[in-house]
Design a protein around this nucleic acid. Structure first.
Length: 597
DNA sequence: ATAGGGTTAG
């Protein structure tokens, strides 16, 4: 007798669609199985438990098929240990498929070690139980615990047993190596697969994207189409996401058309990828268009649209969407609140931010580190540095992004003393990112603690770390024109620099001057920043009617921000600059960000 | 009948 729920006294009242008065054993058994599958699909824990009790009462608890259905049910409902209990007590371990079931149950429920443990037990029990179904679970478990060595031995076992020729096994191996960041190994497995399908191509592409090999990803996508592969929604959402990352607007639109033609269009995943793509290419209206077109909206789509508005400084719209979402009955999740807090932070709305932060609890959401970090960001940007420190102290785990946000706040509001103190705190954290080290070193310098600043710089230099090169780029037809500060590699360099000098005179006449001390040096340092080169290029080569969209991998410096405002005024054109965190839409001497970024 | 691989929003 199983006692999974010993506290329950059940005098069974069968669930509605469960036939109570069936006579023959077979049809009763079949009905139980059908109902159980229904309850699994519906994730109805109560009815399932009830049925389980009924199974025991009817003495059917050793029927292998039923046991597997029950195990499956409990795994799907995130109760892997209930599944394990059935497995060990019902004698179902005579069947290889039950082993596959228990192993996958553990890995799916984020218990990779238990899964691996049961795999070892299985091999000890009977080596012949090994089949192609367990390999994908194993590779997934290896990814979860980031165990390269174990992953390799799984691969090795697959090769020895020849299961590696199976397309499922092969794809999961490719995925594993890709997630380990070992693209070359992934590619090797991929190349050696005798048979490939959409998933094999998709995981390879996704791996390339994760590793920043964007061109490689596009090449794979093209090859997949070339091989006549029936690419699906998974594949498209990756590629569209990639177009958003690289701001390849033309390609992105082609992908949208292709999705439409291949009937993958109206899903939440594609929808949110498209919204993000349009938004990242500066086309906020286009993003809204997609949002309105896709009728079956999931949370992801609402979130994507909200973050799009936030990036474009249309804060009011973000709040409107949130309200609409509530009215329609879509339940916001943690990411939703990240979007809102981000929006508040970039509009300086401290009170609203506080309100929404508290509102999380109403939705049963526990604020996570990133939400605390957003609050710190919001408060420190608004100059409420002491309150920001309080939030950090409240955090369950203090993260580097929170301290980083506070450092940024100190810099913006010129509180050098506090900045130095925060930098000390950063080093107490131990392992932190290179970016934060640079920030801390700048904070020391600002606080006049030059020796410490130099020490940090030295440490970074000895570690071989350098700042990422600032780049700006513009899409023109089939070509992406990339610029770095002060470089003259572009074939139109001469004209570009001439245009910049011309603009300098024009903007000076319009009133553009640098206010700070050390002006001459600063002009020299900033006049050929990469975004200015890109804008100048667009000014001389784009027709007047074409909007200018410049993308940048770093934050726009305040001097360029002013300069571009004047450039937009003098040239009478709308210039959109996307830096690494948000959008600036310059129009007639004004910027959409309201100078708060 | 049963068990297997990949995705979005930050």
């Amino acid at each position: 007798m199983l006692h999974i729920f010993p506290e329950e006294r059940w005098e069974p009242l069968p669930p509605k669609n469960f036939p109570r008065n069936v006579q023959s054993f077979d049809s009763k058994y079949g009905a139980i199985c059908d109902s159980l599958m229904d309850f699994t699909r519906a994730r109805d824990l109560l009815k399932g438990k009830y049925l389980h009790a009924y199974v025991i009462k009817s003495g059917l608890q050793t029927m292998p098929y039923l046991c597997q259905l029950l195990m499956n049910f409990y795994s799907k409902l995130c109760l892997p240990y209930c599944s394990e209990k059935i497995f060990h007590e019902s004698g179902v371990d005579r069947f290889p498929t039950a082993w596959a079931s228990i192993i996958s149950g553990f890995t799916k429920n984020e218990l990779p070690l238990c899964g691996i443990e049961h795999f070892k037990l299985m091999l000890r029990h009977d080596v012949n139980f090994l089949d192609d179904h367990v390999f994908p679970c194993l590779t997934k478990a290896c990814v979860m615990i980031k165990d390269h060595v174990l992953g390799q031995s799984v691969h090795c076992l697959a090769v020895k047993t020849l299961f590696n020729v199976n397309v499922f096994v092969g794809s999961s191996l490719v995925d594993m190596y890709a997630k380990f960041g070992r693209l070359a190994d992934a590619q090797k497995v991929f190349d050696e697969m005798p048979e490939r399908n959409v998933v094999s191509w998709s995981v390879m592409m996704y791996g390339c994207i994760e590793m920043g090999d964007w061109e490689g990803a596009l090449r794979f996508f093209k090859d997949a189409l070339w091989h006549g592969l029936d690419v699906n929604g998974f594949t498209f959402s990756s590629v569209i996401g990639l177009c958003g990352n690289l701001t390849l607007f033309q390609l992105g639109k082609q992908m949208q058309a292709l999705c439409f033609k291949m009937n993958h269009y109206r899903t939440g995943f594609i929808g949110s990828a498209l919204i993000s793509m349009y938004s990242r290419c500066g086309e906020i209206e286009g993003a809204r268009g997609v949002f309105d077109e896709v009728l079956d909206k999931n949370v992801g789509m609402w979130n994507a649209m909200m973050i799009a508005y936030a990036h474009h400084s249309q804060t009011r719209r973000v709040f409107e969407l949130f309200e609409e979402m509530e009215n329609v009955g879509v339940k916001p999740n943690g990411v939703t609140f990240s979007c809102i807090l981000y929006a508040c932070s970039h509009a300086g709305l401290v009170e609203e931010g506080n309100l929404y932060f508290r509102k999380m609890k109403v939705y049963g959401l526990q604020p996570r580190s990133k939400h605390y970090a957003s609050m710190v960001d919001l408060l420190s940007r608004a100059g409420k540095l002491q309150e920001a420190i309080k939030v950090i102290e409240e955090m369950p785990i203090q993260t580097e992004s929170a301290w980083g946000a506070l450092l940024t706040g100190c810099r913006i509001h010129g509180d050098t003393e506090l900045g130095g103190y925060v930098a000390d705190k950063v080093f107490e954290l131990g392992q932190v990112s290179i970016d934060l080290h640079f920030q801390a070193s700048n904070a020391y310098a600002a606080a006049g603690r030059y020796e410490e600043a130099a020490k940090v710089r030295m440490m970074l230099r000895d570690g071989g770390h350098r700042k990422e090169t600032g780049l700006s780029w513009v899409e023109d037809g089939n070509r992406v024109h990339t610029f770095a500060a002060g470089e003259r590699r572009h074939e139109l360099s001469a004209e570009i620099y001439r245009k910049l000098e011309e603009m300098e005179e024009e903007t000076a006449r319009a009133g553009y001057v640098l206010k700070e001390a050390g002006v001459e040096e600063k002009i020299q340092r900033t006049r050929y920043h990469s975004e200015r080169l890109a804008i100048a290029f667009a000014l001389i080569s784009f027709p007047q009617s074409r909007p200018i969209r410049v993308m940048k991998n770093m934050r726009c410096c305040s001097d360029c921000h002013v300069a571009i405002k004047f450039m937009s005024k003098c040239s009478g054109r709308t210039i959109t600059v996307r830096d690494n965190s948000r959008f600036h839409r310059f129009q007639n001497g004004e910027c959409s960000c309201g100078d708060y970024w």
